[in-house]
Computed example of a mutant assay.
Amino acid sequence: MGMSSGDKFQKDECLLVARACRDNVDSIQQRIDRLNKEIGKGTAVYSRDELKMLDSQLKDATRTLEMLISDGA
């Protein structure tokens, strides 16, 4: 998946509204990576409320990954 120069300043609507991207399925690690990338765009792209929501999703995904790793050990 290539990134156009405008991607840096565009919101990832799929992460903000899950129902808008039913066809897009990420692994937990891919989701964590995408969330980190989007959060890194900061307030130049996202409102503070949107960043809080993305951060909450990141924490949930990280906890899920940690649970899967610890259960598999």
Rank of each mutant, 00 (worst) to 15 (best):
C14G: 11
R22V: 13
S5D: 13
S5P: 07
V17H: 05
V25D: 05
D49F: 09
G72D: 12
D33E: 14
Y46S: 09
D23N: 14
N24R: 08
K59S: 09
Q10P: 03
L54H: 02
L15E: 00
L65C: 02
K37T: 09
D55S: 13
T62L: 08
E13P: 06
D49L: 07
L35F: 04
E50N: 02
D26Q: 11
E50M: 00
D71F: 10
E50S: 05
S5W: 12
A44D: 15
D49S: 13
D26N: 13
M53K: 14
R19P: 05
G42S: 04
V17K: 08
G42E: 05
L35M: 11
S4G: 15
Q10L: 15
V17N: 08
G42R: 07
D7G: 01
L65A: 08
D49A: 15
Q57W: 00
S4T: 15
L58N: 00
R31T: 10
K41W: 08
V17F: 06
T43M: 13
V17D: 09
L35Y: 04
I28V: 12
E13G: 05
S47V: 09
M53S: 12
A73V: 10
T62A: 03
D12Q: 01
Q10M: 11
L15A: 03
K41D: 06
C21H: 04
A18M: 08
L51D: 03
